[in-house]
Structures are given as C-alpha cells and as structure tokens.
Amino acid sequence: MDVDAYTARHGPEWQRLQRLVARASRLSGPEADELVTLYQRTATHLSTIRSSSPDPALVQRLSQLVAEARSAIAGVHTPAWKVAVRFLVAGFPAALYAGRRWWLCVSAVSVVLSLVVGAWVAGSPDVQSAIASPAEIRRLVDVEFEQYYSSAPAGSFAAQVWTNNAWIAAICLVSGILIVPVVSVLWQNVLNIGVTGGIMAGAGRLDLFFGLITPHGLLELTAVFVAAGAGLRLGWTLVDPGPLPRATAVAAAGRATVGMALGVALLLAVSGVIEAFVTPSGLPTWARIGIGVLAELAFVAYVWVLGRRAARAGETGDVDEAGDLLPTAG
C-alpha cells in the first residue's frame, strides 16, 4: 500500500477529527454524530495501515488520535446486540478469510490422510483384526455406528456433541502457540475418521458411513479445521512474525484467535443441532446429506462474500480493534 497516497486521501478526515476532539465538550448534535463517524473511519484506517503497510510514525499518530476520540465519546456504547451483529458480519468472516490458507491446507491434508488410513484399514483384514475382534466389528457395523446418533434425546445429544467438539477446538486454539498439540489433535481426528470409515468400507457399509457422517460432518470438521488452522497460524507467528516486532505480531494473532474461538463455537453449535436432529432423522439419505451440503455451502459463501468484503475494508478479526468501532452517538 502507498502510505503517502493513503495519507493524502484520508488526511483531511483525520484533521477534521482532531479539530472535533479538541472542542468535544462544545459540539452540536450534528458535530457529535460527525465525531463518531470520523472516529469509526479513522479506526478502520488504522487497522488497514497496521495490516497492510505498518508505518510506525503513522500508526502512532493515528493510535493517539483514535484514543483521544474514544475518550471524547466515553460513556456512550453500542448496544450488545449491535456488537454481536458486527462480529458476525465483519470480524469473524474477516478472520476466516485472512486465515483461509491455513485452514484450507489443514482441511486438504486431513482429508487425504483420512482417505489413506481408511483405504489401508478397509483393504487389510489383519489390520481390522488388530483393531477389534470380528464380533466387535460386526456390532459396530450393524448396530453401534447408527445407534450412536439416537443414543440420547436430541437436545441433550446436541449439547453433548457441542461440548465435546468445542473442547477439541479449544485445544487447537489455546495450544496453537506450541504447534505440536494441534498436530496431535488433527492426527487423532484423522485416525478416528479413517479407522471407522475403513471398517465400515471393509464390511460393505460405506453408504451408511457417509449417509450418517456427511450431514453434520462437513460443517463440524470445517470448524475443527478452522480452529486448527488458527492455532497453527498463531504458533507460526511466533516463529516468523513478519515485518512487525515479534511481541506485537503474536499479540495481534492471539487476539484474532480469541475472536475465532467465539465464531468456531457458533459453527459447532450449528453442526451439533444438525447432528442431533437431522442425522438420526427419518429423512431420506439424500435429504439429510443435502442439508449438510447446504450448510457447508452457506459457510463458504459467508467466508468468500462477507469475509472478503470485510477484509478489504480493513477488518482483521483483532478483538482489540473492536472497541475502536463500537461507540455511537445514539
């Protein structure tokens, strides 16, 4: 980004904001509204400069201006529902879009490894016998795999599934700075899917496997991959912080990861509802799979439409910047 051109374009707005801040106690109603609007725009400009072309002098200047403007508007806050809406339509999708290379790579590698493990298990009776006895395999194929999804009342089952998956995602996000725990979680996930799928395929019940796992699994696995990608991105930032000082880069990545945790929890809640109410339902297989595919396509559109738009507007998903955009004059 050309910092000089950006400054020339938005400098008048910054100067106007500075003048309004200087006489904040004597502003008219329209001027107070203008103060809030310019404050929000300047906070976005600051975010854009930080993420695209960090200029220490300009960042310092705008940070001070934003802080002064925030103090001038202190005591007036955006309602909580507006904060939540802004997070859903800007912060979270922007963070997803910014980290897309990480979670897409995690997704691709995990899927390929799961297929390799599944093919290995399906094609080797010796491997299957080492995993479980013939009676246990038959019980899994004929009863347990399908019965699992209706083993508890739908509401309780949804809560149980959400709690379990949220715990897995939390491990990926919290321990991402260490990298190794995330890789371990992903490998366990690969083994669980590959081994179960391989056993079902070896018994000729791959149709049942995909018929039951696809409706909720698409979005559920995507959420886990997003969490793992965010965790690995955080860990790699410690190794290679880029143009920013290591502490600054890691702190920004960590704050973005906190925002990702909230969004991932929502994704897992949706997949948990699908797993509890759609997967074990009496709907035809094509209908259940269709619901899962639609949920996944909605997520993809969410990232590539809202996420790309928010990222281009300067959003990064950094929760520390959210406060710079929350105050209003109402």
Rank of each mutant, 00 (worst) to 15 (best):
S53E: 15
P54A: 09
D55Q: 03
D55F: 01
P56W: 10
P56Y: 10
P56Q: 10
P56E: 11
A57V: 11
A57H: 09
A57R: 11
A57T: 13
A57P: 02
V59F: 01
V59N: 01
Q60G: 15
Q60I: 14
Q60R: 13
R61L: 12
L62W: 00
S63H: 03
S63T: 07
S63Y: 00
S63Q: 06
L65I: 11
V66Y: 01
V66G: 04
A67S: 11
A67K: 06
A67F: 05
A69M: 14
A69N: 07
A69D: 07
R70E: 13
S71V: 14
S71M: 14
A72Y: 02
A72Q: 05
A72D: 02
A72K: 06
I73H: 12
G75C: 13
G75I: 14
G75R: 12
V76W: 06
H77G: 06
W81V: 11
W81R: 12
K82W: 13
K82P: 07
V83I: 08
V83L: 11
A84K: 08
A84Y: 08
A84R: 07
A84W: 13
V85A: 11
V85E: 05
R86W: 11
R86D: 10
R86L: 11
F87L: 05
L88N: 03
L88E: 06
V89N: 04
V89R: 00
A90L: 14
G91P: 03
G91D: 10
G91N: 07
G91K: 00
G91T: 10
F92V: 12
P93A: 02
P93M: 06
A94L: 06
L96V: 06
L96S: 01
Y97D: 03
A98L: 13
A98K: 11
A98T: 12
G99A: 15
G99D: 14
G99V: 10
R100T: 10
R100F: 15
R100K: 14
R101F: 10
W102R: 05
W103E: 08
L104V: 09
L104K: 03
C105G: 10
V106A: 01
V106I: 07
V106T: 05
S107F: 09
A108N: 01
A108H: 02
A108T: 08
V109D: 02
S110G: 02
S110C: 02
S110D: 02
S110E: 04
V111I: 14
V111G: 04
V112W: 07
V112S: 07
V112Q: 05
L113P: 12
L113W: 08
L113T: 09
L113V: 13
L113S: 09
S114I: 00
S114Y: 01
